[in-house]
Design a protein around this nucleic acid. Sequence first.
DNA 1: CTGTGTGAAGGCTTTCACAGCC
DNA 2: GGCTGTGAAAGCCTTCACACAG
Lengths: 205, 205
Amino acid sequence: MKESIPRKTVYRLSLYKRCLERLINGEGATVSSDVLAKVAGVKPTQLRKDLGTCGQFGKRGLGYDVVTLHRRLSDTLGRASLQPVILVGAGNLGSALLRYEEGFAREGFEIAAAFDAQPRKRSRDVKAPIFPLARMGRFVSEHGVKMAILCVPGTVAQEICNNLVASGIQAILNFAPIILQVPGKVMVNNVNLAIELENLSYFIR
Amino acid sequence: MKESIPRKTVYRLSLYKRCLERLINGEGATVSSDVLAKVAGVKPTQLRKDLGTCGQFGKRGLGYDVVTLHRRLSDTLGRASLQPVILVGAGNLGSALLRYEEGFAREGFEIAAAFDAQPRKRSRDVKAPIFPLARMGRFVSEHGVKMAILCVPGTVAQEICNNLVASGIQAILNFAPIILQVPGKVMVNNVNLAIELENLSYFIR
DNA sequence: CTGTGTGAAGGCTTTCACAGCC
DNA sequence: GGCTGTGAAAGCCTTCACACAG
């Protein structure tokens, strides 16, 4: 059953997991694919197909046991243990994300450290230390950090990305407005607010 | 001209436009699909197919004129005129985005106003005024605002979304960690950092 | 010979239809 | 009757192959 699940499906599994968490304190101990699909904004058949990729555990005529399904999704999606992440670039967006630390922790990610070209004094609400960029590479390799959140200006993003890759980073959540060139083994997810806005504005004509 | 470009293609057209902007000050006045595709992280054939949706203007044997192509993309994607947007929720993320105002302006979007349940005093770096939520609906309908950026907690997101829709909002860039239920005419793009991280962590196993 | 434009093929996702179990 | 599981069909996107212009 270890056959690779498609990327889009994995994305939706994460979504279902979060929807379940909102239902878990709710009424029934069981959900139908119709109800869960509606909350997640997908079609019921799609939901069932997606769940099919990680085994079968629905009760026909009844639905899915909320707790069991949630545990199953968590198992499939990966460790419940805290995955350490570093944040690079503590500008506007970067420091906002740092302040959102508890939020990340709740989701299973710990911001182990932050790095910036101009490290500031630790600000009131930010617990994680902000180190100079020069220390980044060593921190990554010494602590075996696998994931980084990149919030630096586009002009320096590729260079910093190269350093991250050289230090052994395997995945990058990239907020910089360029497409990073990385070796195939490194995975990058891009978040580009300008493009999202432009996309919306196209469709409202 | 061609009607209804697929959503994914529109997204990539935005991407190409931004890649061009980085090349526009560079050397040649012309780009080949190979070069541009590499910068954008797609295959050359895909790029050509995508460009095909908004007319043809490449010179065979030469490539595309950078300036012409850029103008064509801008025309296709929508007005170069400033589209007004409101921002709802001035917490960590919301105020970081407000501070990024110039960035949005450069991309063609103006944050006309911000709203929050607890409006604060205007902070140093933030130019846009932060109004109480109660004024949101009227502002939207009176100014004919079509787009909103939603950065409120999940617990109140749907309710606020309903107000926005009732006031005539047509598109929402949603950072709240739930799937909003909206009428079909309203378009929503979701940005969920936790899911992006979880997605990355799945694939690095 | 270089590099675009495009019909056709191929691959991937979603949806349908219905069988099977509670 | 209600609801899941799944092969088959449909739809959508991407890639290929090649004609054709500069």
